[in-house]
């Protein structure tokens, strides 16, 4: 069943906030799909990168509940291909930040086994914590 969407000022505020945080002019997105087609993580995502751009553009805050922004690993594949030179990785980071600044963490150090902690390179651990905690 089609979803009924209302366009309202809250949505515009959301867009403005994400545009400011990311520094990207999201309204420039042409919805060409290049980012989604090239994203190496696409199989793990519930919402495609191009959809993220679209949903933010029309102010759909529920995009915050999607997995995608946590899956995006800032690999910059889309960054170097987007015909509009938009940087989806920055938009994903902005969305993460909005969540993380509500003091919600997305990683639990307790869950990493001792064995893993021993072999994991420090860049992996530091990187993950910087991306998943506020």
């Amino acid at each position: 069943m089609a979803k009924l969407i209302k366009l309202d000022d809250k949505g515009v505020e959301f867009l403005d906030k994400i545009m400011e945080l990311s520094g990207e002019t999201i309204t420039l997105c042409d919805q060409c799909g290049t980012c989604s087609g090239g994203c190496p993580f696409i199989a793990e995502m519930d919402v495609n990168p191009s959809q993220i751009m679209r949903q933010v553009m029309i102010g759909q805050k529920n995009i915050m509940e999607s997995k995608t922004m946590w899956i995006c690993a800032s690999c910059f594949t889309c960054t170097v291909r987007c015909p509009r030179e938009l940087d989806v990785s920055k938009v994903a980071e902005a969305l993460r930040q909005v969540k993380l600044r509500e003091a919600i963490d997305f990683i639990d150090i307790e869950k990493i086994s001792e064995e893993e902690a021993r072999i994991l390179p420090s860049i992996a651990i530091v990187g993950a914590f910087r991306k998943f905690t506020g």
Binding site: P40, F41, I71, A73, S74, C75, T77, I107, D108, K111, I112, E116, L120, I123, A124, I125, G127, A128, K131, F132
Partner: peptide
């Protein structure tokens, strides 16, 4: 050769 390996997702 330049496809992402999954990066820090290796942690969790």
């Amino acid at each position: 050769g330049s496809r992402c390996c999954g990066s820090y997702h290796t942690v969790n």
